Amino acid sequence: MSDNRLEGLLHLFVFPPKMTVLSIAENRFWGTASSVCKIRGGILNFLDLSDNLLSGHLPNCFMHLRKLLILNLAGNNFTGKIPSSFGSLSQLHTLNLCWLKYLRILDLSANNISGTIPQCFNNFTAMAQKGDLFNGFIGSNYTDSYVYDYDDTQEFVNDATVIMKGRELEYGKYLGLLKIINLASNKLTGKVPSEISSLLEMVVLNISRNKLIGEIPQMIGQLKQLQSLDMSKNQFSNEIPSSMSELHFLSDLDLSYNNLSGKIPSGTQLQSFDAVDFTGNWALCGPPLPNKCPGEETPNQSDQPTDHDGYEDNEKDGDEFEKWFFAAAGFGFFVGFWGICGPLLFKSSWRGAYFLFLDNMKDWLYATKLAMCMKRLRRKF
């Protein structure tokens, strides 16, 4: 019943017995997820509650769904910590938590999950080793073959989607093709555990829009298969690890709006990304950002190659002339000013003669002007 406009309290939902597939994604159901625990028989394989209005804590009763392969809870308003009882879902392929060695896609994005990222991520064997521990796709040779007798299970798995490189993509039949962790848009705190660097075959890591702190794991360069890394809008600090230059397949990167500092590792493909991927880190410097790092020397203009050597020589001569011109003008003003005004300030006889001269000059100008005015009047009359 996914992708409709259904709404209402999920608790009132009537679930038929022995259900193996339930998908009510992209509707407007609200309430808690505990009502799903009313499904009897424990043979549910596929549960998709994503993109609804569900809230509250994740129920412990999910531990009874021991045959669950795929659980999608993204795009709701769940709060609190993930119950440790989820670890009993030993056959789960898509969720989170420790000891789920077949796990390939962990998508808990766009919820309100709090707490820290578990340190036991290194137990995700399928993300750490090459090959596909789960042979083939749904419906192939797996020990619990009875799980796949329900034909529609295959269709629901094929229609599942993940967020990769900022786009929603269908990952199709082969679960082993993508190994993804998406914890974006939650309320996770604390540091990113160093154990995450052991997931050597991980393709996408998105932990953006949380409240994570501390350094980016120094050994993140071990994730050689990583193609998309989004750690934006957190509170990461200190320098970008130099090992990040070893992520040769990385084609999508976003470290913006953290507290990173220092120089972006140079001589690597990190310079091929846009400056916007590093913006919001006020102490970060170096290409592709426009601000230079302290101590970096700016080349002199004379050291830069040019095809107009004569023009540069003329420009240099012009600069030298301007320097001497302003120096001479300043010296001349100083001498002229004090040469005239100095004696008037310190010698009273010179001041008297000077003011007498000005007074006589005023009288002469007044008499001359008066004579000229009288001459004009005579002509007129």
Rank of each mutant, 00 (worst) to 15 (best):
residue 4 N to T: 04
residue 11 H to Y: 05
residue 11 H to T: 10
residue 18 K to I: 01
residue 21 V to W: 01
residue 22 L to G: 01
residue 25 A to Q: 11
residue 32 T to S: 15
residue 33 A to L: 12
residue 41 G to V: 02
residue 41 G to A: 08
residue 56 G to H: 08
residue 57 H to P: 02
residue 64 H to E: 09
residue 69 L to C: 01
residue 75 G to M: 02
residue 76 N to G: 10
residue 77 N to M: 05
residue 82 I to R: 01
residue 86 F to G: 00
residue 89 L to V: 02
residue 95 L to Q: 00
residue 102 Y to I: 03
residue 111 N to Y: 05
residue 118 P to K: 05
residue 120 C to T: 13
residue 121 F to E: 01
residue 125 T to E: 14
residue 134 F to L: 14
residue 136 G to C: 10
residue 138 I to P: 01
residue 140 S to V: 02
residue 146 Y to E: 13
residue 149 D to T: 10
residue 149 D to N: 12
residue 170 E to D: 04
residue 171 Y to T: 13
residue 171 Y to K: 05
residue 173 K to D: 08
residue 173 K to P: 06
residue 174 Y to T: 14
residue 175 L to K: 01
residue 179 K to C: 04
residue 183 L to H: 06
residue 193 P to T: 13
residue 195 E to M: 06
residue 196 I to Q: 00
residue 200 L to Y: 08
residue 202 M to L: 15
residue 202 M to S: 04
residue 205 L to I: 13
residue 213 I to P: 00
residue 215 E to H: 07
residue 216 I to Q: 01
residue 218 Q to V: 09
residue 219 M to N: 15
residue 219 M to D: 15
residue 220 I to L: 11
residue 222 Q to S: 15
residue 223 L to A: 11
residue 224 K to I: 15
residue 225 Q to R: 14
residue 228 S to R: 06
residue 248 H to A: 14
residue 259 N to G: 09
residue 260 L to E: 08
residue 261 S to C: 13
residue 264 I to T: 05
residue 266 S to E: 13
residue 272 S to T: 14
residue 274 D to F: 04
residue 280 G to F: 03
residue 291 N to W: 00
residue 294 P to H: 11
residue 300 N to M: 07
residue 304 Q to I: 15
residue 309 D to I: 11
residue 318 G to W: 01
residue 329 A to T: 12
residue 339 G to H: 12
residue 367 A to F: 04
residue 372 M to I: 02
residue 374 M to Q: 11
residue 375 K to D: 05
residue 377 L to T: 07
residue 378 R to N: 05
residue 378 R to S: 12
